[in-house]
Simulated assay, not measured.
Amino acid sequence: MITSLQALRFIFALFIFTEHFPISEDAPHLLHGAGAMGVSFFIVLSGFVMSIGYEKRVQEPAFRWKDFMFKRLIRLWPLHLLCLAAWIILAYGAWGSSAIYPLPLLGNALLLQWLPIEHIEGNSVAWCLSVLVIFYAVYPFVARFKTRSLFLFFVGVSVVLHGLTILYRPINTTAYWYISPASRILDFLLGMITFRLYRKALNQGGKQRWACLPVMLRWGIELIPLGLYAVALCYLRSDFTDLKSVVLFYVPSCLVIFLFALASESEEKDGIPELLSQKWLIYLGQVSFSFYMVHNLVILSVKKGLEYFAPATPWELRLVISLVGAIVAGILVNRYFEAPVANRLSKLLPAKK
Rank of each mutant, 00 (worst) to 15 (best):
L103S: 04
W210T: 05
D239K: 11
E222V: 08
A62Q: 13
I74G: 07
I221R: 05
S40I: 11
G35V: 02
L223V: 07
F260V: 06
G122W: 06
V246F: 03
G220D: 11
R9D: 00
V231Y: 08
K66P: 00
R169Y: 14
F48Q: 05
I257M: 12
I23W: 01
T165D: 11
A351K: 12
A85S: 09
F153N: 09
C128E: 11
Y292N: 12
L259Y: 00
V302E: 06
L317Q: 14
G53L: 12
A175E: 13
A126R: 00
L255H: 11
R196V: 07
L202W: 00
F141N: 03
C212G: 15
I224K: 05
M216D: 11
V251C: 08
L223H: 03
A232N: 10
L110E: 08
L323M: 07
E25M: 09
A137S: 07
P78R: 06
K303V: 01
A230W: 12
L202S: 08
L105P: 00
G330T: 02
L306N: 01
G47R: 13
G163W: 03
M216T: 08
S346P: 03
Y283M: 07
L82Y: 02
G285R: 03
A351D: 08
K269V: 03
R57W: 07
R169P: 01
V294M: 03
G53Q: 13
F195Q: 04
S24M: 10
F41M: 08
